[in-house]
Design a protein around this nucleic acid. Structure first.
Lengths: 209, 209
DNA sequence: ACAATACTTCACCCGTGAGTGCAATATCGA
DNA sequence: TCGATATTGCACTCACGGGTGAAGTATTGT
């Protein structure tokens, strides 16, 4: 039903913007162009609405991991590994500090006490799927001999947090997304460190004090 | 005054445990062995009490960064750099996922909308000081020729998030601290990657596939 | 011992926001 | 067009918790 979708849309907007407690059912109804009563005819209570909305957003967020996954399947070779990883790293870092993502994480962390299952679901489905995609990619690259990877999962988490850890943590607490260029430069530096460890030997022999 | 301290103690316990909205002034008073009225005689309102309590906790948390700083001043040489960094990494990773720390971060992130200045203050004073300590350390080690560091600050953030990023993020969302051994192993792996990039050339020439 | 200051008691006000009941009205599918 | 279903309007109830007032009792320092 169209009504339900409108309610969810409004709920998403407001919950992400003002938090759980900071959003009233009346505001949601108003933004959806409906009445509080109608909202309650579609969703049992505030909790149910919130949960439903988060579940849908998580499903949407999963798409991001799938997109990343694609990138590992285009011909990556020893020759282009650095630029390929730069690209993946850039996407990952930029994707993770998007305002909607940060807002969702903040919301879930803030409500983790009240909705532990949702926070966990998010962790498993969003960062979790990203790590899984990266793991599969590095595993593949390891088996192909493009990278010296033995523990693909660990490589994947190192990659992810090298590339995006600091901007994410900062965004989480400050709420401010650093400038794009900074994030990109930071991701590239992360990739360099990553490759220093995992690139084939020839590539890791970097000169200089 | 002793009363004020008792109130702050109770507030700390309850706010960290149940969040801002989840804690009532009466509960705080009760836990402090006082009356709501007395609490209000010492702190203007809930906001003021909350702010004061957070400020004090942040001041306490800063101590952690100072402790880390010490470690960089004990003779670190090319010979013992790995074990030294393992030690620092271990301390950092274990320190950052302590329940009180996670609870504080969750609280601040959850209330970041209502108290943006507090979250920022925390970011600057806790992770910020840790990064600064690490930066100074790596800068020193770079100048001493123990590490190949040119951008000490970037090295410091890479170190921090390599070593503790994933456990922190997980703890933030799941609320669960991974087992000690996992955290330690993870930190060590982070140090290996870090050293692959920043160790003197001789050390970074690792063999294989 | 005696002020002054701190703390207690407790009844209170007040805004807020979740959730409901029900009759009236609109919408929509067949 | 008719009947079912969705939506509205709106007045309510209720619980909760922040914050206050004022008179009385305890502490404390000197």
């Amino acid at each position: 039903m169209r009504t339900r979708a409108a309610v969810i849309d409004a709920a998403r907007t407001l919950f992400l913007r003002h938090g759980y407690a900071g959003t009233t059912m009346e505001e949601i109804a108003a933004l959806a162009g409906l009445t509080k009563r109608t909202v309650y005819n579609n969703y049992a209570d505030k909790d149910a609405l919130f949960t439903q909305m988060v579940v849908e957003v998580i499903a949407f967020a999963e798409q991001f991991a799938n997109d990343l996954r694609e990138e590992f399947m285009v011909g990556i070779t020893t020759a282009n590994i650095r630029v390929a990883l730069d690209d993946v790293g850039r996407r990952l870092a930029l994707g993770i500090v998007r305002p909607e993502v940060v807002a969702l994480r903040r919301l879930l962390i803030g409500e983790a006490r009240a909705f532990p299952a949702l926070a966990r679901e998010y962790f498993d489905r969003a960062p979790g799927q990203v790590i899984e995609a990266l793991t599969d990619g590095f595993d593949y690259l390891g088996r192909e001999g493009v990278l010296r990877v033995t523990d693909a999962q660990r490589a994947a988490t190192q990659f992810a947090y090298l590339v995006a850890g600091e901007p994410l943590d900062r965004a989480m607490l400050i709420g401010t997304t650093p400038p794009k260029e900074y994030i990109i430069a930071n991701a590239q530096e992360g990739v360099r460190t990553f490759l220093a460890r995992y690139a084939r030997v020839k590539d890791s022999r970097r000169r200089r004090t």
